[in-house]
Design a protein around this nucleic acid. Structure first.
Lengths: 187, 187
DNA sequence: ACGGGCATGTAACCAGTTACATGATTAT
DNA sequence: ATAATCATGTAACTGGTTACATGCCCGT
């Protein structure tokens, strides 16, 4: 998923300016990386050069003019083909897991803060997914499928973290909804 | 989590050569990105230059010599401090979610293949986590905490995908363990 | 004979971030 | 006043990947 591909994904849904594309990527669906303008604008220029998109300047009152990009048929077909041919990767890069691994070195207070910070972030992402599910982008079927997939992991993460935090604060209680002893990694 | 930090993490657990560090990152725990040798060896050289690690050449019979790196006290303390100060990020970059979003354009057969491919991969990762939980790295408490966290999401992903695949193959059945209708994004 | 695992390293390249540059409008 | 939002863009830099270079041992 490079920036050009990411831009085409947004433009496939509807016309947008560079600024709007960035906002769409950052806000609309959790877990899609924020892109910087320094990479975004050159990428859009290249899309136009390659005939995958066209641009037009739209004047606005109050705010500056914007360059609205529109995907071409070539852009549409190339985007879908590239997406279809790409392996179904799903990579996690997590400082948080590393912090869990070295929790003993960080100390219980810092560990608690970190888990709390992450829990809040996961809850925010969950809200973004809910907002996406209630939006009118894509078909109902697609929105439900994507939401179910994302919610599954996010809810699990929230649940686990709440248990871990509770356990840290009162180590003697065994919370009712998790098993102690060997971890069961049921698929 | 840049490469130097990643190397220090592995070396914090025990001495290792460049080759072994790469293997540790790729195999031992799911969701830690594979690093290329082109980035790894220069990073290790820099660690030695900065006094964060030392290296010694170990002769082996049959296989070539290897350069085993050992973390220094400075390396240890700097690694932990950097890790503690870092924000608890947890980023997902997923071609797969993008493919779910544009599932209608890909067609049901391709969608099914993609979900199957991803399901297999998640199952593999689940096995890696189980192997980690049964290993002797880190304390039991840490292994359980990390395993619980990782298993939670991976199991949820597997469950969701199995439902989605079943639904695709017989759209009329409503699987017993998922609700149809509006998605519930319970935290 | 050939592929794969072990083992280290460099050079060319590329894709991204960060910082800089500009500037109007609106809300606090 | 001062920050935030809207809006586009360039230049320097960084942090990686890919491909290349080398070489030996083991299994089939």
């Amino acid at each position: 998923m490079n920036i050009k591909q990411l831009c085409l994904a947004v433009l496939h849904v509807g016309d947008a300016s560079g600024y709007e594309i960035r906002k769409a990527l950052a806000d609309d669906l959790a877990s899609f990386q924020e892109v910087s303008f320094g990479a975004l604008y050159p990428a859009l220029r290249k899309l136009v050069e390659e005939g995958l998109a066209t641009s037009r300047t739209v004047s606005q009152t109050g705010v500056p003019d914007k360059k609205v990009y529109e995907i071409t048929e070539l852009g549409r077909s190339q985007f879908i083909k590239t997406l279809s041919d790409a392996p179904a990767t799903h990579q996690v890069r997590s400082t948080f897991i590393m912090q869990l691994l070295f929790a003993e070195e960080l100390g219980p207070e810092r560990l608690r803060d970190i888990m709390l910070e992450r829990l809040t972030e996961f809850e925010n992402e969950l809200e973004k997914v809910a907002a996406f599910a209630a939006s009118d982008c894509f078909s109902l079927e697609t929105r439900e499928r994507v939401s179910r997939f994302c919610c599954g992991a996010l809810s699990a993460h929230c649940q686990t973290l709440r248990n871990e935090i509770a356990e840290l604060e009162s180590p003697n209680d065994t919370p009712n909804n998790r098993t102690s002893g060997p971890v069961q990694c049921a698929g």
